[in-house]
Amino acid sequence: MIIKIATALLLAGVGAVWQGLFWAILAIGVYISFRILDFADMTSEGSFALGGCVSATVIVSWGWNPFLSLLIAVIAGMLSGVVTGLLHTKLKIPAILSGILSMIALYSINLRIMGQANTSLLGEKTVISEIKGLLPAAKDMGIKDSSLQTMVCIGLGLVFALLVIVLLYWFFGTEIGCVLRATGNNEAMVRAQGANTDLMKILGLAIGNGLIGLSGGLVTQSYGYADVTIGVGAIVIGLASIVIGEVVFRKRRSFARKLAAIVCGSVIYRIIIAFVYQLGLNTNDLKLLTAVLVAVALSVPVLKKQKVKVRREV
């Protein structure tokens, strides 16, 4: 039994790490809208798929450089965030509904972009194949090709995660970044201090969805195919990573460490998922499991408070 679990863990761990790193950027994007802006942004579901579709399409149809395709994915994601922001701030549509409208619209847009429901990247250039091309062949290093592939993915994932953390740490320390943080905290105060809260929300949603688009592009390229349904549940997966990170790394006060905790949360989430697969979970039950996980994690602080109250009353 113990051996079985250990093997399951090991198998789960390897693939889970690089997946977790690529998905972590989605989680950071969700963190910006959900935690910093206090905006439950459903656009993520669409912008994640959008990043993948755009990235795959420019690689396959136009033969563009896969790294450049990621930049396009970021820009596309940012645009979708801007649309949600405009719907919410200028047309006064409630936050949740603005996101849902963008999400639904993006479903059709993604189909239009690819012209079909999925696109294979088999034999195409991807960021992973490009990096692998720079390294000596796996055979020469005496390792299996799949191991090299995994190592490249983990390396890329680390580089991108680190890059995103450094960039965001810088940005949220700047004057505009401070105003953005304050906007999620207290809009009335930000306006009283002379900053345009509408603009800040649009900017925040653009940054969040830009990162989510990047994550979609990376995940798509590493999986080897783009699919319009890949974004289903993206916001919940992002939230799961955030809450796991928060639970495991409590009392992380500095911003950079909070972001690092999210990355770890995302990796842990993937390990949990891979582990329960190994133990025989039906793939179809995954979303249910994730939803329960997030619901439980989000309710822990509330339940803790109630427990304290009950104790006091007794």
Binding site: E175, V179, A182, N185, A188, V190, G194, A195
Partner: peptide, 29 residues
Amino acid sequence: MLGTAADMEIEENLALAYRRGKKRGLSWG
């Protein structure tokens, strides 16, 4: 609760107020 941002530090709140009426850019907050 309305005049300050609760999740931000005292100095960050003051810094926000210090930039009232000024164009905010990408220099340190």
